[in-house]
């Protein structure tokens, strides 16, 4: 069993990682990378099935255990199964005009289909609402947590003001008296915003990005060489 649960997964990981690295540097082997990519994409499609199965397992268990909030799990399962059903069987979809007599030839997401209806009138407003709620929490957090407690906080606060005002026409209005093409044109809020984003932000982001890239390289090597085995699901 150790061969199936340990050795083979580690071997696949090592070989796949090595192939991807080699194919990036040696043009002759670029096709190997393409093949590995195709394998990955097929697996990614399977991941949707696996994800669906996992969703069923988790929520069915919650319902059977009657744990706290099990009713919500019921809602999730009903919505999941209903969407899957109307999508797979193309309920209400108009037939494809090129093949009007062929069953299931219509477009799943075509206007008027049940799938389209669920997307347009359920999924779309719900996700947009969830995202919109952020504005309310950000406002509340800004009122309670954004304090000028020390020098660093004052810098952060000043930057926030410039970005907030420079991103809307208020920024233009406030510093409109500074000629844009004059020697102090860069001090206009909308120009200061761009300067902060392109200079200070870029410098900071680049440093973080380089750090992350080095971290990814070292972690990837550890995984490929079998030193880090946490992805196998054990405590090793």
């Amino acid at each position: 069993m150790q061969i199936l649960t340990r050795f083979i997964p580690l071997l696949i990981t090592g070989i796949a990682g090595l192939v991807m690295i080699i194919s990036a540097f040696i043009p002759y082997t670029s096709e190997w990378g393409q093949k590995a990519g195709q394998f990955f994409n097929i697996l990614a499609a399977f991941a949707f099935v696996l994800g669906g199965g996992n969703l069923l397992k988790v929520h069915l268990k919650k319902i059977s255990d009657q744990s706290v909030g099990w009713g919500y799990s019921g809602v999730v399962l009903i919505c999941f199964i209903a969407t899957l059903f109307v999508g797979l069987f193309k309920i209400g979809a108009y037939p494809n005009p090129n093949f009007p007599n062929v069953p299931f030839s219509g477009e799943t997401q075509g206007t008027g289909s049940w799938f389209w209806w669920a997307y347009e009138y359920v999924f779309k407003p719900l996700t947009a609402t969830m995202f919109s709620i952020l504005a309310f929490y950000v406002a509340s957090a800004a009122f309670r947590a954004f304090r000028a407690k020390n020098f660093e906080a004052i810098l952060l606060l000043g930057t926030a003001f410039i970005i907030l005002l420079g991103s809307v026409s208020a920024g233009v209005f406030v510093t409109n008296w500074i000629p844009n093409d004059g020697p102090f044109g860069d001090l206009r809020l909308e120009n200061l915003r761009i300067y902060i984003m392109q200079v200070f932000n870029t410098a900071g982001t680049r440093a973080i990005m380089i750090g992350i890239a080095l971290g990814i390289a070292s972690t990837s090597l550890k995984i490929m060489l079998g030193i880090d085995r946490s992805f196998l699901g054990s405590g090793d």
Binding site: V138, A142, F143, A145, L157
Partner: peptide, 9 residues
């Protein structure tokens, strides 16, 4: 947002 930050401070 700007008003709330100022008020909070």
């Amino acid at each position: 947002m700007v008003f709330l930050i100022i008020l909070g401070n």
